[in-house]
Design a protein around this nucleic acid. Sequence first.
DNA 1: CTTGGCTCAGTGGCCTAGCCAATAGGACAA
DNA 2: TTGTCCTATTGGCTAGGCCACTGAGCCAAG
Lengths: 236, 236
Amino acid sequence: MSAPESPFPPRLLRTRLYEQVAGQISSWISDNGLGDGDKLPPERELAQRLGVSRATLSQALVALEVVGVVEVRHGDGTVVTAGHQTSSRIVEAIRSHADRLPEIIETRDALETKIASLAAARRTDDDLSRIDDALAFMAADIDAGGRGVEGDERFHGAVTAAAHSLLLARLMDEIGDLIKETRLESLGQPGRPQDSLAGHRAIAEAIRAGDPARAAEAMHAHVAMVSDVALLREQR
Amino acid sequence: MSAPESPFPPRLLRTRLYEQVAGQISSWISDNGLGDGDKLPPERELAQRLGVSRATLSQALVALEVVGVVEVRHGDGTVVTAGHQTSSRIVEAIRSHADRLPEIIETRDALETKIASLAAARRTDDDLSRIDDALAFMAADIDAGGRGVEGDERFHGAVTAAAHSLLLARLMDEIGDLIKETRLESLGQPGRPQDSLAGHRAIAEAIRAGDPARAAEAMHAHVAMVSDVALLREQR
DNA sequence: CTTGGCTCAGTGGCCTAGCCAATAGGACAA
DNA sequence: TTGTCCTATTGGCTAGGCCACTGAGCCAAG
Protein backbone atom coordinates (compact mmCIF):
# COMPACT_ATOMS: atom_id res chain seq x y z
CA MET A 1 0.00 0.00 0.00
CA SER A 2 3.00 2.26 -0.16
CA ALA A 3 1.85 3.10 -3.64
CA PRO A 4 1.24 6.80 -3.44
CA GLU A 5 -0.72 6.93 -6.66
CA SER A 6 -4.11 5.38 -7.34
CA PRO A 7 -6.09 8.55 -6.85
CA PHE A 8 -9.52 7.01 -7.28
CA PRO A 9 -9.12 3.30 -7.49
CA PRO A 10 -11.81 1.55 -5.54
CA ARG A 11 -15.21 1.23 -6.95
CA LEU A 12 -18.24 2.27 -4.99
CA LEU A 13 -19.25 -0.59 -2.79
CA ARG A 14 -22.11 -2.42 -4.33
CA THR A 15 -24.17 -4.32 -1.88
CA ARG A 16 -25.13 -7.66 -3.17
CA LEU A 17 -28.37 -9.02 -1.84
CA TYR A 18 -26.76 -12.09 -0.38
CA GLU A 19 -24.54 -9.91 1.78
CA GLN A 20 -27.48 -8.14 3.30
CA VAL A 21 -29.26 -11.41 3.82
CA ALA A 22 -26.20 -12.93 5.44
CA GLY A 23 -25.91 -9.93 7.70
CA GLN A 24 -29.53 -10.15 8.74
CA ILE A 25 -29.34 -13.82 9.45
CA SER A 26 -26.18 -13.28 11.39
CA SER A 27 -27.64 -10.61 13.59
CA TRP A 28 -30.87 -12.53 13.90
CA ILE A 29 -28.86 -15.39 15.30
CA SER A 30 -27.22 -13.28 17.92
CA ASP A 31 -30.34 -11.26 18.67
CA ASN A 32 -32.20 -14.41 19.50
CA GLY A 33 -29.31 -15.81 21.41
CA LEU A 34 -29.02 -18.82 19.14
CA GLY A 35 -26.04 -21.02 19.84
CA ASP A 36 -24.47 -24.27 18.92
CA GLY A 37 -26.91 -26.69 17.39
CA ASP A 38 -29.89 -24.39 17.19
CA LYS A 39 -31.75 -24.67 13.94
CA LEU A 40 -32.63 -21.99 11.49
CA PRO A 41 -36.02 -22.07 9.79
CA PRO A 42 -36.27 -24.10 6.58
CA GLU A 43 -34.87 -22.41 3.51
CA ARG A 44 -38.25 -22.05 1.85
CA GLU A 45 -39.73 -20.35 4.85
CA LEU A 46 -36.69 -18.24 5.59
CA ALA A 47 -36.49 -17.09 2.00
CA GLN A 48 -40.10 -16.01 2.04
CA ARG A 49 -39.74 -14.29 5.38
CA LEU A 50 -36.73 -12.34 4.16
CA GLY A 51 -38.38 -11.60 0.87
CA VAL A 52 -35.72 -13.15 -1.32
CA SER A 53 -35.55 -16.19 -3.54
CA ARG A 54 -34.22 -19.46 -2.34
CA ALA A 55 -31.27 -19.10 -4.68
CA THR A 56 -30.19 -15.86 -3.07
CA LEU A 57 -30.74 -17.20 0.43
CA SER A 58 -28.62 -20.16 -0.58
CA GLN A 59 -25.80 -17.81 -1.53
CA ALA A 60 -26.07 -16.12 1.83
CA LEU A 61 -25.87 -19.47 3.57
CA VAL A 62 -22.80 -20.39 1.55
CA ALA A 63 -21.17 -17.18 2.71
CA LEU A 64 -22.09 -17.83 6.33
CA GLU A 65 -20.88 -21.38 6.00
CA VAL A 66 -17.53 -20.30 4.63
CA VAL A 67 -17.16 -17.88 7.49
CA GLY A 68 -18.11 -20.64 9.89
CA VAL A 69 -21.31 -19.28 11.33
CA VAL A 70 -23.62 -22.06 10.25
CA GLU A 71 -23.58 -25.60 8.96
CA VAL A 72 -26.02 -26.67 6.28
CA ARG A 73 -27.14 -30.28 6.42
CA HIS A 74 -28.80 -31.85 3.47
CA GLY A 75 -32.18 -33.20 4.39
CA ASP A 76 -31.99 -32.00 7.94
CA GLY A 77 -31.69 -28.27 8.13
CA THR A 78 -29.33 -25.43 8.84
CA VAL A 79 -27.78 -25.26 12.27
CA VAL A 80 -25.77 -22.60 14.03
CA THR A 81 -22.15 -23.48 14.60
CA ALA A 82 -20.41 -23.36 17.93
CA GLY A 83 -17.67 -21.10 16.65
CA HIS A 84 -20.11 -18.29 16.52
CA GLN A 85 -19.89 -18.10 20.26
CA THR A 86 -16.62 -16.19 20.20
CA SER A 87 -18.27 -13.40 22.10
CA SER A 88 -17.93 -15.41 25.25
CA ARG A 89 -14.26 -14.48 25.24
CA ILE A 90 -14.93 -10.86 25.90
CA VAL A 91 -17.95 -11.62 27.97
CA GLU A 92 -15.90 -13.69 30.32
CA ALA A 93 -13.14 -11.13 30.52
CA ILE A 94 -15.53 -8.42 31.51
CA ARG A 95 -17.52 -10.55 33.85
CA SER A 96 -14.50 -11.58 35.79
CA HIS A 97 -14.00 -7.98 36.69
CA ALA A 98 -17.49 -7.80 38.06
CA ASP A 99 -18.85 -4.34 38.53
CA ARG A 100 -18.38 -3.37 34.89
CA LEU A 101 -21.90 -2.28 34.26
CA PRO A 102 -20.96 1.33 33.62
CA GLU A 103 -18.56 0.18 30.95
CA ILE A 104 -21.24 -1.75 29.21
CA ILE A 105 -23.49 1.25 29.18
CA GLU A 106 -20.74 3.47 27.87
CA THR A 107 -19.87 1.10 25.10
CA ARG A 108 -23.44 0.58 24.18
CA ASP A 109 -23.91 4.31 24.07
CA ALA A 110 -20.93 4.75 21.78
CA LEU A 111 -22.03 2.10 19.34
CA GLU A 112 -25.77 2.51 19.33
CA THR A 113 -25.76 6.26 19.11
CA LYS A 114 -23.74 5.99 15.94
CA ILE A 115 -25.86 3.14 14.70
CA ALA A 116 -29.02 5.16 15.21
CA SER A 117 -27.71 8.07 13.21
CA LEU A 118 -26.56 5.80 10.40
CA ALA A 119 -29.88 4.02 10.43
CA ALA A 120 -31.67 7.33 10.01
CA ALA A 121 -29.56 8.02 6.97
CA ARG A 122 -29.70 4.63 5.36
CA ARG A 123 -32.82 2.80 6.39
CA THR A 124 -34.83 1.23 3.63
CA ASP A 125 -38.56 0.73 3.76
CA ASP A 126 -37.93 -2.87 4.68
CA ASP A 127 -35.78 -1.80 7.58
CA LEU A 128 -38.52 0.49 8.74
CA SER A 129 -41.14 -2.18 8.62
CA ARG A 130 -38.95 -4.51 10.63
CA ILE A 131 -38.50 -1.79 13.21
CA ASP A 132 -42.23 -1.24 13.29
CA ASP A 133 -42.82 -4.95 13.68
CA ALA A 134 -40.53 -5.02 16.67
CA LEU A 135 -42.35 -2.07 18.20
CA ALA A 136 -45.70 -3.72 17.67
CA PHE A 137 -44.42 -6.93 19.14
CA MET A 138 -43.12 -5.16 22.20
CA ALA A 139 -46.32 -3.20 22.65
CA ALA A 140 -48.42 -6.35 22.46
CA ASP A 141 -46.18 -8.10 24.92
CA ILE A 142 -46.41 -5.27 27.41
CA ASP A 143 -50.19 -5.01 27.02
CA ALA A 144 -50.34 -8.67 27.84
CA GLY A 145 -48.45 -8.02 31.02
CA GLY A 146 -45.01 -8.95 29.75
CA ARG A 147 -41.85 -6.95 30.14
CA GLY A 148 -41.19 -6.60 26.46
CA VAL A 149 -37.72 -8.08 26.70
CA GLU A 150 -37.85 -9.87 23.40
CA GLY A 151 -39.41 -6.90 21.65
CA ASP A 152 -36.65 -4.72 23.01
CA GLU A 153 -34.07 -7.07 21.62
CA ARG A 154 -35.75 -7.22 18.27
CA PHE A 155 -35.99 -3.47 18.10
CA HIS A 156 -32.33 -2.90 18.68
CA GLY A 157 -31.51 -5.67 16.28
CA ALA A 158 -33.65 -4.11 13.59
CA VAL A 159 -32.08 -0.70 14.11
CA THR A 160 -28.63 -2.20 13.93
CA ALA A 161 -29.51 -3.94 10.69
CA ALA A 162 -30.84 -0.66 9.32
CA ALA A 163 -27.46 0.98 9.84
CA HIS A 164 -26.10 -1.33 7.16
CA SER A 165 -22.69 -1.61 8.69
CA LEU A 166 -21.35 -5.10 9.03
CA LEU A 167 -18.57 -3.98 11.29
CA LEU A 168 -20.77 -2.15 13.75
CA ALA A 169 -23.21 -5.03 13.69
CA ARG A 170 -20.43 -7.39 14.49
CA LEU A 171 -19.26 -5.36 17.44
CA MET A 172 -22.79 -5.13 18.77
CA ASP A 173 -22.81 -8.84 18.39
CA GLU A 174 -19.74 -9.15 20.56
CA ILE A 175 -21.27 -7.34 23.47
CA GLY A 176 -24.73 -8.76 22.87
CA ASP A 177 -24.72 -11.03 25.87
CA LEU A 178 -23.58 -8.27 28.14
CA ILE A 179 -26.31 -5.99 26.93
CA LYS A 180 -28.86 -8.68 27.42
CA GLU A 181 -28.17 -8.68 31.12
CA THR A 182 -28.61 -4.96 31.50
CA ARG A 183 -31.80 -5.27 29.51
CA LEU A 184 -33.31 -7.74 31.92
CA GLU A 185 -32.28 -5.55 34.77
CA SER A 186 -33.80 -2.45 33.35
CA LEU A 187 -37.08 -3.87 32.14
CA GLY A 188 -37.65 -5.51 35.48
CA GLN A 189 -38.38 -2.18 37.07
CA PRO A 190 -42.02 -1.16 37.48
CA GLY A 191 -43.22 1.19 34.79
CA ARG A 192 -40.00 0.76 32.89
CA PRO A 193 -41.34 -1.19 29.94
CA GLN A 194 -43.68 1.66 29.07
CA ASP A 195 -40.91 4.22 29.30
CA SER A 196 -38.69 2.03 27.20
CA LEU A 197 -41.38 1.64 24.57
CA ALA A 198 -41.80 5.40 24.43
CA GLY A 199 -38.06 5.77 23.98
CA HIS A 200 -38.11 3.26 21.17
CA ARG A 201 -40.89 5.10 19.44
CA ALA A 202 -38.94 8.33 19.57
CA ILE A 203 -35.96 6.61 18.01
CA ALA A 204 -38.10 4.97 15.36
CA GLU A 205 -39.70 8.28 14.46
CA ALA A 206 -36.36 9.98 14.01
CA ILE A 207 -35.17 7.13 11.83
CA ARG A 208 -38.33 7.23 9.82
CA ALA A 209 -37.89 10.95 9.34
CA GLY A 210 -34.34 10.40 8.23
CA ASP A 211 -32.98 12.72 10.89
CA PRO A 212 -29.59 11.37 12.03
CA ALA A 213 -28.98 13.96 14.72
CA ARG A 214 -32.36 13.42 16.32
CA ALA A 215 -32.01 9.66 16.08
CA ALA A 216 -28.65 9.80 17.79
CA GLU A 217 -30.02 12.02 20.50
CA ALA A 218 -33.03 9.80 21.05
CA MET A 219 -30.85 6.71 21.27
CA HIS A 220 -28.51 8.44 23.65
CA ALA A 221 -31.41 9.38 25.88
CA HIS A 222 -32.71 5.86 25.73
CA VAL A 223 -29.42 4.31 26.73
CA ALA A 224 -29.08 6.89 29.49
CA MET A 225 -32.45 5.84 30.83
CA VAL A 226 -31.37 2.23 30.91
CA SER A 227 -28.16 3.13 32.66
CA ASP A 228 -30.17 4.85 35.31
CA VAL A 229 -31.16 1.53 36.75
CA ALA A 230 -27.78 0.01 36.56
CA LEU A 231 -26.08 2.89 38.26
CA LEU A 232 -28.72 3.09 40.96
CA ARG A 233 -28.16 -0.50 41.71
CA GLU A 234 -24.43 -0.45 41.54
CA GLN A 235 -23.10 2.51 43.36
CA ARG A 236 -23.39 6.16 44.26
CA MET B 1 -29.01 -38.56 19.98
CA SER B 2 -28.96 -39.09 23.66
CA ALA B 3 -25.48 -40.50 23.41
CA PRO B 4 -23.31 -37.82 24.92
CA GLU B 5 -20.04 -38.96 23.51
CA SER B 6 -19.66 -39.98 19.93
CA PRO B 7 -16.66 -42.12 19.22
CA PHE B 8 -17.24 -41.67 15.53
CA PRO B 9 -16.60 -38.40 13.84
CA PRO B 10 -19.80 -36.40 13.90
CA ARG B 11 -20.78 -36.75 10.34
CA LEU B 12 -19.21 -37.63 7.11
CA LEU B 13 -18.04 -34.63 5.20
CA ARG B 14 -20.43 -34.29 2.37
CA THR B 15 -19.05 -32.44 -0.56
CA ARG B 16 -21.33 -29.93 -1.99
CA LEU B 17 -21.06 -29.19 -5.66
CA TYR B 18 -20.18 -25.56 -5.15
CA GLU B 19 -17.17 -26.61 -3.11
CA GLN B 20 -15.80 -28.73 -5.91
CA VAL B 21 -16.46 -25.97 -8.37
CA ALA B 22 -14.76 -23.42 -6.16
CA GLY B 23 -11.82 -25.74 -5.84
CA GLN B 24 -11.55 -26.24 -9.56
CA ILE B 25 -11.73 -22.56 -10.28
CA SER B 26 -9.19 -21.86 -7.60
CA SER B 27 -6.68 -24.35 -8.92
CA TRP B 28 -7.41 -23.30 -12.47
CA ILE B 29 -6.43 -19.80 -11.45
CA SER B 30 -3.13 -20.83 -9.99
CA ASP B 31 -2.39 -23.36 -12.72
CA ASN B 32 -2.73 -20.71 -15.35
CA GLY B 33 -0.82 -18.22 -13.31
CA LEU B 34 -3.70 -15.78 -13.22
CA GLY B 35 -3.07 -12.79 -11.04
CA ASP B 36 -4.48 -9.47 -10.01
CA GLY B 37 -6.99 -8.13 -12.49
CA ASP B 38 -7.15 -11.13 -14.77
CA LYS B 39 -10.65 -11.98 -15.83
CA LEU B 40 -12.49 -15.23 -15.54
CA PRO B 41 -14.76 -16.37 -18.39
CA PRO B 42 -18.36 -15.16 -18.28
CA GLU B 43 -20.59 -17.03 -15.87
CA ARG B 44 -22.70 -18.55 -18.60
CA GLU B 45 -19.70 -19.93 -20.40
CA LEU B 46 -17.89 -21.01 -17.25
CA ALA B 47 -20.97 -22.79 -15.98
CA GLN B 48 -21.34 -24.68 -19.19
CA ARG B 49 -17.69 -25.56 -19.33
CA LEU B 50 -17.77 -26.91 -15.78
CA GLY B 51 -21.02 -28.69 -16.41
CA VAL B 52 -23.00 -26.99 -13.66
CA SER B 53 -25.84 -24.53 -13.55
CA ARG B 54 -25.26 -20.84 -13.24
CA ALA B 55 -26.81 -20.89 -9.78
CA THR B 56 -24.27 -23.37 -8.51
CA LEU B 57 -21.41 -21.52 -10.14
CA SER B 58 -22.72 -18.42 -8.48
CA GLN B 59 -22.51 -20.09 -5.08
CA ALA B 60 -18.94 -21.08 -5.81
CA LEU B 61 -18.11 -17.51 -6.71
CA VAL B 62 -19.69 -16.27 -3.50
CA ALA B 63 -17.48 -18.64 -1.56
CA LEU B 64 -14.38 -17.51 -3.44
CA GLU B 65 -15.38 -13.92 -2.95
CA VAL B 66 -15.83 -14.30 0.80
CA VAL B 67 -12.42 -15.89 1.01
CA GLY B 68 -11.01 -13.08 -1.06
CA VAL B 69 -9.89 -14.94 -4.18
CA VAL B 70 -12.01 -13.13 -6.71
CA GLU B 71 -14.09 -10.03 -7.09
CA VAL B 72 -17.36 -10.19 -8.98
CA ARG B 73 -18.31 -7.02 -10.79
CA HIS B 74 -21.83 -6.50 -11.94
CA GLY B 75 -21.98 -5.89 -15.65
CA ASP B 76 -18.27 -6.27 -16.10
CA GLY B 77 -17.08 -9.70 -15.13
CA THR B 78 -15.26 -11.67 -12.48
CA VAL B 79 -11.66 -10.77 -11.79
CA VAL B 80 -8.97 -12.42 -9.77
CA THR B 81 -7.92 -10.57 -6.63
CA ALA B 82 -4.33 -9.63 -5.88
CA GLY B 83 -3.12 -11.50 -2.85
CA HIS B 84 -5.25 -14.60 -2.81
CA GLN B 85 -2.58 -16.82 -1.36
CA THR B 86 -3.37 -15.70 2.18
CA SER B 87 -6.62 -17.61 2.58
CA SER B 88 -6.28 -17.35 6.33
CA ARG B 89 -9.07 -18.22 8.70
CA ILE B 90 -12.21 -16.61 9.86
CA VAL B 91 -10.47 -13.39 10.71
CA GLU B 92 -9.46 -13.00 7.13
CA ALA B 93 -12.88 -13.88 5.90
CA ILE B 94 -14.50 -11.28 8.04
CA ARG B 95 -12.04 -8.73 6.88
CA SER B 96 -12.96 -9.32 3.29
CA HIS B 97 -16.44 -8.33 4.28
CA ALA B 98 -15.43 -5.44 6.43
CA ASP B 99 -12.70 -3.97 4.32
CA ARG B 100 -14.92 -1.14 3.44
CA LEU B 101 -13.24 2.04 4.42
CA PRO B 102 -16.45 3.88 5.26
CA GLU B 103 -17.49 1.22 7.72
CA ILE B 104 -14.16 1.27 9.43
CA ILE B 105 -14.24 5.03 9.72
CA GLU B 106 -17.75 4.99 11.08
CA THR B 107 -16.91 2.43 13.68
CA ARG B 108 -13.75 4.15 14.66
CA ASP B 109 -15.63 7.40 15.01
CA ALA B 110 -18.22 5.78 17.23
CA LEU B 111 -15.69 4.24 19.56
CA GLU B 112 -12.97 6.85 19.68
CA THR B 113 -15.24 9.82 20.11
CA LYS B 114 -16.62 8.20 23.20
CA ILE B 115 -13.19 7.16 24.32
CA ALA B 116 -11.90 10.70 24.01
CA SER B 117 -14.66 12.10 26.13
CA LEU B 118 -14.16 9.45 28.78
CA ALA B 119 -10.44 10.04 28.73
CA ALA B 120 -10.99 13.72 29.38
CA ALA B 121 -13.05 12.84 32.42
CA ARG B 122 -10.86 10.12 33.83
CA ARG B 123 -7.29 10.62 32.80
CA THR B 124 -4.70 10.40 35.50
CA ASP B 125 -1.41 12.23 35.40
CA ASP B 126 0.24 9.05 34.26
CA ASP B 127 -2.17 8.79 31.38
CA LEU B 128 -1.37 12.35 30.42
CA SER B 129 2.34 11.77 30.40
CA ARG B 130 1.96 8.72 28.22
CA ILE B 131 -0.08 10.76 25.80
CA ASP B 132 2.55 13.46 25.80
CA ASP B 133 5.27 10.90 25.21
CA ALA B 134 3.43 9.62 22.18
CA LEU B 135 3.06 13.14 20.84
CA ALA B 136 6.75 13.85 21.33
CA PHE B 137 7.65 10.59 19.64
CA MET B 138 5.47 11.35 16.67
CA ALA B 139 6.81 14.89 16.35
CA ALA B 140 10.39 13.67 16.37
CA ASP B 141 9.62 11.04 13.78
CA ILE B 142 8.01 13.55 11.46
CA ASP B 143 10.84 16.02 11.90
CA ALA B 144 13.18 13.27 10.85
CA GLY B 145 11.18 12.81 7.68
CA GLY B 146 9.05 9.91 8.87
CA ARG B 147 5.31 9.60 8.57
CA GLY B 148 4.65 9.25 12.25
CA VAL B 149 2.81 6.00 11.89
CA GLU B 150 4.04 4.48 15.10
CA GLY B 151 3.53 7.67 17.05
CA ASP B 152 -0.01 7.81 15.77
CA GLU B 153 -0.60 4.31 17.01
CA ARG B 154 0.90 5.04 20.39
CA PHE B 155 -1.15 8.16 20.78
CA HIS B 156 -4.44 6.44 20.15
CA GLY B 157 -3.38 3.61 22.39
CA ALA B 158 -2.58 6.02 25.18
CA VAL B 159 -5.89 7.81 24.81
CA THR B 160 -7.75 4.54 24.82
CA ALA B 161 -5.95 3.52 27.99
CA ALA B 162 -6.85 6.84 29.56
CA ALA B 163 -10.52 6.15 29.07
CA HIS B 164 -10.18 3.32 31.58
CA SER B 165 -12.78 1.16 29.95
CA LEU B 166 -11.80 -2.43 29.49
CA LEU B 167 -14.65 -3.08 27.13
CA LEU B 168 -14.00 -0.18 24.82
CA ALA B 169 -10.32 -1.08 24.80
CA ARG B 170 -11.18 -4.61 23.80
CA LEU B 171 -13.34 -3.48 20.96
CA MET B 172 -10.68 -1.09 19.72
CA ASP B 173 -8.34 -4.01 19.80
CA GLU B 174 -10.71 -6.04 17.68
CA ILE B 175 -10.68 -3.56 14.87
CA GLY B 176 -7.05 -2.61 15.41
CA ASP B 177 -5.78 -4.25 12.27
CA LEU B 178 -8.41 -2.65 10.15
CA ILE B 179 -7.60 0.75 11.57
CA LYS B 180 -3.94 0.23 10.96
CA GLU B 181 -4.57 -0.02 7.27
CA THR B 182 -6.48 3.22 7.10
CA ARG B 183 -3.75 4.84 9.13
CA LEU B 184 -1.06 3.89 6.66
CA GLU B 185 -3.27 5.14 3.89
CA SER B 186 -3.91 8.46 5.53
CA LEU B 187 -0.42 9.26 6.70
CA GLY B 188 0.91 8.48 3.27
CA GLN B 189 -0.58 11.66 1.93
CA PRO B 190 1.68 14.69 1.60
CA GLY B 191 1.33 17.14 4.48
CA ARG B 192 -0.89 14.74 6.31
CA PRO B 193 1.47 13.84 9.15
CA GLN B 194 1.62 17.47 10.23
CA ASP B 195 -2.13 17.86 10.10
CA SER B 196 -2.51 14.68 12.05
CA LEU B 197 -0.09 15.85 14.69
CA ALA B 198 -2.01 19.07 15.08
CA GLY B 199 -5.20 17.11 15.47
CA HIS B 200 -3.59 14.99 18.13
CA ARG B 201 -2.45 18.04 20.03
CA ALA B 202 -5.96 19.45 20.05
CA ILE B 203 -7.26 16.19 21.43
CA ALA B 204 -4.53 16.03 24.04
CA GLU B 205 -5.23 19.57 25.17
CA ALA B 206 -8.91 18.89 25.65
CA ILE B 207 -8.11 15.79 27.63
CA ARG B 208 -5.60 17.66 29.73
CA ALA B 209 -8.19 20.35 30.41
CA GLY B 210 -10.68 17.69 31.42
CA ASP B 211 -13.21 18.86 28.87
CA PRO B 212 -15.12 15.80 27.57
CA ALA B 213 -17.21 17.64 25.03
CA ARG B 214 -14.22 19.35 23.46
CA ALA B 215 -12.22 16.13 23.49
CA ALA B 216 -15.02 14.32 21.72
CA GLU B 217 -15.32 17.07 19.17
CA ALA B 218 -11.58 17.13 18.53
CA MET B 219 -11.46 13.38 18.10
CA HIS B 220 -14.42 13.44 15.78
CA ALA B 221 -12.73 16.08 13.66
CA HIS B 222 -9.55 14.04 13.62
CA VAL B 223 -11.29 10.89 12.47
CA ALA B 224 -13.15 12.91 9.87
CA MET B 225 -9.81 14.14 8.54
CA VAL B 226 -8.58 10.61 8.21
CA SER B 227 -11.74 9.61 6.40
CA ASP B 228 -11.00 12.35 3.94
CA VAL B 229 -8.59 10.05 2.21
CA ALA B 230 -11.12 7.35 1.93
CA LEU B 231 -13.63 9.71 0.43
CA LEU B 232 -11.14 11.02 -2.06
CA ARG B 233 -10.63 7.51 -3.26
CA GLU B 234 -14.28 7.09 -3.89
CA GLN B 235 -14.76 9.95 -6.25
CA ARG B 236 -16.16 8.77 -9.51
C1' DC C 1 -11.01 18.21 -32.31
C1' DT C 2 -13.43 17.75 -28.07
C1' DT C 3 -17.40 16.93 -25.49
C1' DG C 4 -21.54 14.93 -24.14
C1' DG C 5 -25.42 11.95 -25.05
C1' DC C 6 -27.11 7.67 -27.11
C1' DT C 7 -27.32 2.95 -28.33
C1' DC C 8 -26.19 -1.76 -27.90
C1' DA C 9 -23.99 -5.98 -26.83
C1' DG C 10 -22.08 -8.43 -23.00
C1' DT C 11 -22.29 -9.70 -18.27
C1' DG C 12 -23.77 -10.34 -13.54
C1' DG C 13 -28.06 -10.11 -10.19
C1' DC C 14 -32.00 -12.23 -8.95
C1' DC C 15 -36.29 -14.68 -9.59
C1' DT C 16 -39.76 -18.50 -10.51
C1' DA C 17 -40.68 -23.27 -10.93
C1' DG C 18 -39.52 -27.75 -10.37
C1' DC C 19 -37.43 -32.23 -9.70
C1' DC C 20 -33.94 -34.97 -7.21
C1' DA C 21 -31.65 -36.68 -2.89
C1' DA C 22 -30.85 -37.06 1.99
C1' DT C 23 -32.67 -37.26 6.61
C1' DA C 24 -35.48 -38.07 10.59
C1' DG C 25 -39.14 -39.98 12.71
C1' DG C 26 -43.23 -42.70 12.95
C1' DA C 27 -45.82 -46.98 11.65
C1' DC C 28 -45.62 -51.62 11.57
C1' DA C 29 -44.18 -56.37 11.43
C1' DA C 30 -41.14 -59.91 13.40
C1' DT D 1 -37.73 -54.77 21.69
C1' DT D 2 -35.85 -54.65 17.29
C1' DG D 3 -35.44 -53.94 12.61
C1' DT D 4 -37.60 -52.45 8.28
C1' DC D 5 -40.13 -49.51 5.51
C1' DC D 6 -42.66 -45.35 4.37
C1' DT D 7 -43.23 -40.63 4.04
C1' DA D 8 -43.07 -35.76 5.09
C1' DT D 9 -39.62 -32.43 5.40
C1' DT D 10 -35.67 -30.15 3.91
C1' DG D 11 -31.59 -29.04 1.28
C1' DG D 12 -29.15 -29.62 -3.65
C1' DC D 13 -29.22 -28.40 -8.14
C1' DT D 14 -31.05 -27.26 -12.70
C1' DA D 15 -33.44 -24.64 -16.35
C1' DG D 16 -34.88 -20.55 -18.26
C1' DG D 17 -35.88 -15.83 -18.11
C1' DC D 18 -36.01 -10.78 -17.15
C1' DC D 19 -33.69 -6.84 -15.34
C1' DA D 20 -29.68 -3.68 -14.24
C1' DC D 21 -25.17 -2.31 -14.85
C1' DT D 22 -20.89 -1.60 -17.64
C1' DG D 23 -18.12 -0.31 -21.34
C1' DA D 24 -17.27 0.67 -26.06
C1' DG D 25 -18.50 2.73 -30.19
C1' DC D 26 -21.19 6.15 -32.78
C1' DC D 27 -22.80 10.66 -33.63
C1' DA D 28 -24.26 15.33 -33.23
C1' DA D 29 -23.35 19.71 -30.92
C1' DG D 30 -20.01 23.00 -29.48
